[in-house]
Write a protein that binds this DNA or RNA. Structure first.
Lengths: 269, 269
DNA sequence: CTTCCCCATCTGGTATACCAAAAACAAGGC
DNA sequence: GCCTTGTTTTTGGTATACCAGATGGGGAAG
C-alpha cells in the first residue's frame, strides 16, 4: 500500500523525527524533571495539547509520556478531565514507603545470598561516590547518588523484576524524599547507615542489613508529614505565575481518601 | 480555536464512540483474555494495525492497550519491531514469584494489624466462594476466585499502593499459575491453605500467616518449570504438524539472562 | 548454483483532523 | 441578589494520513 507513486510530494514535512529510540521517553523525562524540580506544582493540570505545542512535539507522544508518568504515580489521570500533577497525601506516601521498605528488605536478603563480589563492589562504590561528594555536591546530585545506591542493591539482588518495581517506587517517592532531605543531619545519618548496610552486605549478614534498613527508613513517615505541611503552606501562599488558576476549592479535597485506589491498570475479565 | 466552520460536512463519520468510560482498557482486557486463554501464543507478534482492524477500532487505542499489557509483562516491546506476546523464562517467573511472596507477606502482616472485622469477613467470604465452587466451577473460574482471594488480602491491608502492585504481579503470573493449576491436588492443597490463612488472619497471628504463606507459594518455581516445559513442547509441536516433536533449540536460549532487565520506565535525569 | 544487492512492502512512530463530554461563562427568571 | 439554564470554550478520545526503518524475496552478477 505504501509508495505507489515515487514521492510526488516534495514537501519535506514540518518535522523529521529520524531518531527512533526514545521520543516519548524523552518527553516523559522532561516532564518528570519539571515536576520533581517544582516547575510543575502538585495539583496543576497537565494539558497534553499545550505541553505538546510547548515542547514542539505532537499530542501522540506527549500523551504516551503522560501515561508513563501516571504509571509512576507522578501524574494523576481522571476519567474525562485534564491530568494533574499528583499531590500524594500522607497516607499514600506512607503506604508507598511501606512497600519500598519491603522491597529493599528483599533486595538486601537476595543480595546477601546471591550477589557476586563484583556486584557488592559496585554497591560499595556507589556508597563511596555519595560519601565523596557529600561535602561538595549539590543537594540534588547528592540525592541522586543516594537513589543510585539503593538502586544498586536492588540490581545486584539479581532479581530483575524486583529491581524494576523498586525503581518505580523510588521514583514515586523521589520528590517527597528529596524535599525531606533538606535537613543536613539526616543526610549525614543516611551516609553512616549506608556504610553499615554495605558492611552487612559484604558480611552476607541478612539480619544486620535488615536492622540497619529499618533504622534507615523508619523515620520516613515523619519527614513526609513535614514535607506535606510545607507543600500545603506554599500552595496556600502562592498563586503567582500560574495566571489562570485561582486558589480554587479543588486544591483541598484531594486530601480526602479516594475510595478505591487500586484499579487503573485495567482488570482481567 | 475549534470549529470556525459550522460543520459543513454532514458525514456522520464511520464510528461514534459514544461510550466514554474505558475503550483502551476494554481492548486491553480483550487482548489479555486472548493471551491468557492461549489464542495468542507466546512469541507471536501483535501487530497493532491488524488487531485494531480486527476489533473494529483504530490504531490509537489499540496502541495504548498494547502498552498496558506491556506494562503488565504480557507483551514484550522491541525497539523497532513488532511487539510479541511475552514468553517469560523460568528466571523471570521465579523472580516475579519472589516479589509476589514478599508483597503477600506484607499484605498479611498489615491485614493482621489493620484490617477491620468487615474486611476480614470479605477475605473469608472470598475463600468461601472458592471453596463452594471447587467441585462445580470451571478451572478458569476457580482460578479467578483464587486470584480474588489473594487480591482481597492485599486490599484489606489498607495499603492501596501495595494492593496495586500486588495486583500487577498477580496479573503477570496469571497465565503461568493458571497453567500450573492443572494438577487437581494442588488446587485442593491451595484450598486448605487458604482456610489456614483466613484462620491466621482472624486470629491476627502474623507468624502463622507467614508460615502458611510460605508453604502455599513455595512450590511455585517447580510448577513454573513444568509449565515452561509444556509450553516448549507445544510450541515445538505446533510448527510442524507431524507429531514428531523435536527438542527445539530456541526454547533454551530464552533462559539466558537478558543483560538489562530494568530500564523501560525511563529514568529521572 | 550461490551470493549479494535492490526494491516492494510491512509496520511502528509521529502528526493532525474531528468528535463529544464537561466545565466555564453569560443571560434570563424567580 | 441568587439560582437556573442555554451557549461557548476547553480538552481528552478517537480516527486517519504520512514517514522512516526493517524485512524479505527476486533478479543480476560471479
Amino acid at each position: 500500500m505504501g509508495k505507489t507513486a515515487p514521492d510526488p510530494d516534495p514537501t519535506p514535512n514540518r518535522r523529521v523525527p529520524m531518531s527512533l529510540p526514545p521520543l516519548p521517553d524523552h518527553i516523559a523525562a522532561e516532564l518528570r524533571r519539571k515536576i520533581l524540580r517544582g516547575d510543575l506544582r502538585p495539583g496543576q493540570s497537565v494539558k497534553e495539547r499545550d505541553h505538546a505545542a510547548e515542547m514542539g512535539v505532537s499530542r501522540t507522544p506527549m500523551r504516551e509520556a503522560i501515561r508513563i508518568l501516571a504509571k509512576e504515580g507522578l501524574i494523576e489521570l481522571r476519567p474525562a478531565r485534564s491530568p494533574v500533577v499528583a499531590r500524594p497525601d500522607l497516607r499514600e506516601l506512607c503506604d508507598s514507603a511501606e512497600v519500598l521498605i519491603a522491597l529493599e528488605r528483599l533486595s538486601g536478603e537476595l543480595a546477601c545470598r546471591n550477589a557476586s563480589d563484583a556486584g557488592l563492589a559496585r554497591i560499595a562504590s556507589a556508597a563511596q561516590r555519595m560519601e565523596d561528594g557529600f561535602a561538595t555536591a549539590e543537594r540534588i546530585d547528592s540525592f541522586e547518588m543516594d537513589m543510585a545506591f539503593h538502586m544498586a542493591i536492588a540490581v545486584e539482588s539479581g532479581n530483575a523484576a524486583l529491581a524494576r518495581t523498586h525503581r518505580a517506587y523510588l521514583a514515586r517517592l523521589w520528590r517527597a524524599r528529596f524535599l525531606a532531605s533538606r535537613l543536613k543531619e539526616r543526610r549525614q545519618l543516611a551516609l553512616e547507615q549506608h556504610g553499615q548496610m554495605v558492611a552487612a552486605l559484604v558480611a552476607r549478614d541478612v539480619g544486620a542489613f535488615t536492622a540497619v534498613l529499618g533504622d534507615h527508613l523508619a523515620g520516613l513517615p515523619d519527614y513526609f508529614r513535614l514535607v506535606l505541611a510545607g507543600e500545603a503552606a506554599e500552595a496556600g501562599a502562592e498563586t503567582s505565575k500560574d495566571g489562570g488558576r485561582r486558589p480554587g476549592k479543588d486544591e483541598d479535597e484531594t486530601a480526602a481518601l479516594r475510595g478505591e485506589g487500586i484499579g487503573e491498570a485495567g482488570t482481567s475479565g
